[in-house]
Amino acid sequence: MSDNAGFESSMDAAMLEIIADVGRNMKTACYVVEAEAKKNCPVDQGLLRASITSEVDISASEIVGMIGSTLEYAPYVHEGTGIYAKDGNGRKTPWGYTVMAGKYKGFHWTRGQRPQPFLEDAKLSKKSSIERILGGKS
Rank of each mutant, 00 (worst) to 15 (best):
K39Q: 07
G88R: 09
S61E: 15
K123A: 15
T81G: 12
K86A: 00
E34H: 10
H108S: 02
E34C: 05
A101Y: 15
P42W: 07
G68N: 06
A50K: 13
L71R: 07
G90Y: 08
S138N: 09
D21F: 14
Q113A: 06
A74N: 13
I58S: 01
S128K: 14
L71K: 09
T70E: 14
V64W: 00
K27F: 06
V43A: 07
K127N: 11
A85W: 08
I18C: 08
G6T: 12
A37W: 14
V64K: 03
K123C: 15
R24Y: 09
R132P: 04
K103Y: 03
G90K: 10
K123E: 15
R49N: 04
F7K: 10
E120P: 03
A74F: 10
S54F: 09
S129F: 05
K103R: 12
K92S: 01
V33E: 03
E36C: 01
M1L: 11
G46N: 10
G106V: 01
E36T: 02
A29W: 07
T53D: 08
N40C: 11
M11Q: 13
I63W: 14
G46Y: 13
N40I: 10
A14S: 06
E34R: 14
C30P: 15
M15L: 13
C30A: 15
D44Q: 07
A60H: 12
A13Q: 14
A35N: 10
S129P: 04
S69F: 04
L119Q: 05
G46A: 09
T110E: 01
T70A: 12
K105A: 13
E55W: 04
I67G: 02
T98W: 06
I67M: 03
G88Y: 09
E34K: 15
S125A: 02
M100L: 11
P117V: 02
Y104N: 03
A13T: 13
G68S: 07
M15E: 12
E17T: 14
D21C: 09
I83T: 06
I130L: 01
A37N: 12
G96A: 00
D57M: 00
N25I: 03
L71S: 01
E8H: 15
M15V: 08
D12C: 02
A60T: 11
L134Y: 12
E36Y: 02
P94R: 03
V32Q: 06
T81M: 12
A29E: 05
H78K: 08
D57Q: 00
G6S: 09
W95T: 02
A13E: 12
E72V: 12
K27D: 11
N40Y: 15
G90F: 07
K127M: 09
S128M: 09
A74P: 12
K92C: 00
S128Y: 10
N89D: 04
S54I: 02
F118S: 03
R132D: 04
M66N: 04
E8S: 15
H78G: 03
E120Q: 11
G80W: 05
V64Q: 02
H108C: 03
S125M: 00
S125T: 05
M100C: 06
V22M: 13
A37Q: 11
G135H: 03
L47M: 05
V32W: 08
G90D: 04
Y73K: 07
V56D: 03
E17A: 13
P94D: 00
G23Q: 13
V77M: 01
K27I: 00
G65D: 03
L16H: 13
L47K: 06
D87R: 06
L71V: 05
W109N: 10
